[in-house]
């Protein structure tokens, strides 16, 4: 299904507190995302890519335009779109396992027994079985982010929304989790919107990269990474490095040009 998510003419403007200064965050923008597709939103910081993703998640209301998921018009947030945040959103009063189980708490499609099984499944998938009974402020930032990802997957959303989920992590942990996410994606084929400003991360994980302009966000370029570097090659580390660096340079140049606009405006 090619138009699994349909974003149509979505626009958003923020007003300053006194209501005098308007900042257009997202210009009327349309886009479709296919089922099972991993789309990376890439762009200069503050460009409105996170806002657009939050609109898809129902956490922000657009001033105009509509979002359809599987043909259904979306309004507020619900379980169909799970979100992983940049900051650690695992609950400190619950153990690792109970955090993941919390993802199943509001599901009515499975039994209590199945909820336990789902919890164990994702606990194993993110490699935290050994830490099941730990409270989350006694595990590292990378582990906490794995808890948040597992919790979101356990809620079985149709769409996974990830807001720079690895942004606060050190380089080694980030790389480890990127590969773990590729494994998860291979197993689950979950439709994902992933916001990042890390070009290499985008190339590594994406089926498609959407590059945004500086604020207000409009699409500067879309790149189907699959056509340039196969996902298997990227996963196995056998990707053609010349192509990889050429693509990286091309994207960096686009973003650099957009970032320059940001500075001019300021």
């Amino acid at each position: 299904m090619d138009n699994f998510i349909q974003i149509k003419d979505v626009a958003k403007t923020y007003w300053s507190n006194d209501g005098k200064i308007e900042t257009k965050v997202v210009l009327p923008l349309s886009m479709t995302i296919g089922e099972g597709e991993m789309v990376m939103f890439l762009g200069p910081s503050g460009c409105g890519k996170t806002t657009l993703m939050r609109i898809v998640g129902g956490l922000e209301t657009p001033d105009q335009g509509t979002i359809h998921l599987h043909g259904d018009l979306l309004t507020g947030p619900d379980r169909r779109r799970g979100m992983v945040f940049q900051s650690y959103s695992s609950y400190p009063w619950l153990t690792v396992r109970d955090n993941i189980k919390f993802g199943t708490r509001y599901r009515k499609d499975i039994s209590a027994q199945e909820k336990e099984e789902v919890t164990d499944h994702y606990l194993n998938m993110v490699g935290l079985k050994r830490y099941a009974d730990f409270y989350t402020n006694r595990i590292s930032g990378g582990m906490r982010q794995r808890v948040a990802i597992a919790r979101t997957l356990a809620s079985s959303p149709d769409v996974l929304l990830m807001d720079e989920p690895f942004g606060a992590l050190d380089a080694q942990t980030r790389e480890y989790l990127q590969f773990q996410l590729m494994d998860i994606n291979k197993a689950e084929k979950k439709t994902t919107i992933f916001v990042t400003h890390d070009v290499e991360e985008a190339i590594l994980l994406a089926n498609r990269i959407v590059i945004f302009s500086s604020r207000p966000a409009r699409v500067v370029r879309e790149i189907k990474v699959d056509d340039i570097l196969s996902i298997e090659d990227r996963r196995n580390g056998t990707a053609d490095m010349d192509r990889f660096f050429k693509l990286r340079a091309e994207i960096l140049e686009l973003i650099r040009a957009e970032y320059a606009h940001t500075l001019e405006e300021a």
Binding site: P77, D78, M83, S89
Partner: peptide, 23 residues
């Protein structure tokens, strides 16, 4: 209470009352 706690609850399918009681 961090806004991410509340928003993650919303995207996990909790109602407002459940977010209050459980989060």
């Amino acid at each position: 209470v961090p806004v991410e706690f509340v928003e993650s609850g919303q995207t996990l399918g909790a109602s407002n009352g459940q977010i209050m009681r459980h989060i």
